[in-house]
Simulated assay, not measured.
Amino acid sequence: MAQTTASLHTPGQFDPDNLQVTFCNKTDSEMKLAYWLFNMMGMPALVKAGGMATILALRLGLPIKPLIRNTLYRHFCGGETVQEAQQVVQKLAAARVQTVLDYAAEAQDTEPGFDAVRDEVLRNIALAGDTRGFSCISVKLTGIGHNSIYEKLHLKQNLSPEEQKAFARTEARLDEICRAAAEADITVYIDAEESWLQNPVDELAEEMMRRYNKERAVVFNTLQMYRTDRVAYLKACLRRFENEPVILGIKIVRGAYLEKEQNRAEAQGYPCPVFTRKADSDKSFNEAIDICLDNLHRVELCAATHNEQSITYLTKRIRQDNISNHRDRIHFSQLYGMSDNLTYNLAAAGYNASKYLPYGDVATAVPYLIRRAEENTSIAGQMGRELVLLQKEMRRRKL
């Protein structure tokens, strides 16, 4: 892969405590909103109850959309349309932060619903190719295919003829997206799913990498490193592609379904597929970093994490190992609305940093937003860290 001039620059020191860089894009009113939100999200019981109440209110047709739009939605989403999201994309770009555009609507479990998601993603790829405003998109395979079919495939159960045709349509949708991305020079991050759906997602992601990752990583598969088997999967994946001219796209996250995974395993009486101790997830995540860096000649790595220790570890490895093409091979990413001290200071130091930017109609994106809020409350120390940084900056601004 050719190296760009920027990629040859040695990155600067990553300083997650530089508040002026952290909040360079935040107005005073945005600071106050963020402080209020993170105070609320520091109470998990309130988040859970509020989420249930919000869904009920929307079902009953109560006029709460403006309230959602001006609070949670404003802080964590780019807008209801891709045109609105473009304004946020430009704002991020001004701070040298890239965007991973994420269509957040929860798809209907129907063929027309899956086609609608595919069409929206294809329009975004075309827009990215035309404007060069952003270079990455996120795709959730449960948005373009039936959960029930993924689950049967995961269990190696035979599909009916109708299910086989439906799954072929799912693969065709994904292929259309990946082919369009390759032609437009866009990157596709395929999201991870629950453990009982993941095997066919892995297989589809690997097939797309085999088709399109010849000269660069067009397609990334996502590995949830809180799963006990993901280090083994990563090593096996590297072995499978050892003699193939393919650049593997590997995005590592800690994981998004901890409570759901533990509860299901207990209810159905099978071994829990996720670590029960955070220290084990941390070790697994950093081991994946090491494996990818050892194979960087045939891997592109995206470390999508809010964990400051893992990010610091990776930036130190880049500097110590003198990885000159780090901007081409190594990406960092955090959710929009969270951990700005990581994203903005990574970008300021010269690393390839991005925000996951969701957008979509308020009503259809609410389940997504609630899931994000519940995830955020479960990140150890996250709310306290966000609040401390906000308090310091608000004092500096005399708010």
Rank of each mutant, 00 (worst) to 15 (best):
K316G: 05
V82H: 07
E193K: 06
A205I: 08
C24K: 10
C136D: 14
D175Y: 04
Q87P: 02
F332K: 04
P273R: 04
I252M: 05
R329S: 10
L314V: 01
W36L: 14
A205Y: 14
V47P: 00
R216I: 06
G143S: 10
L174C: 08
R216F: 01
E393C: 07
P63Q: 11
P161H: 10
A85C: 10
A184I: 11
A116C: 09
E308A: 09
Q320H: 12
E266I: 13
F241E: 02
M208W: 01
A349H: 13
G145Y: 13
W36I: 10
M31C: 08
T81D: 10
K165D: 12
H297Q: 12
Y35K: 12
M394E: 05
E300L: 00
A205C: 15
S284I: 13
L67K: 13
L155K: 14
T131L: 08
L153D: 08
F14I: 11
K316M: 10
S284K: 11
I149Y: 07
L67P: 00
Q164M: 02
E287S: 09
E261S: 07
A85V: 01
M31T: 01
A236L: 13
D102V: 09
A181V: 10
R240P: 11
F134P: 04
T5Q: 14
M383V: 00
T4G: 15
A363N: 03
D119Q: 09
R132V: 13
G113C: 01
N345K: 12
A2I: 15
V219C: 03
A181E: 14
M1S: 15
E375R: 14
V201L: 02
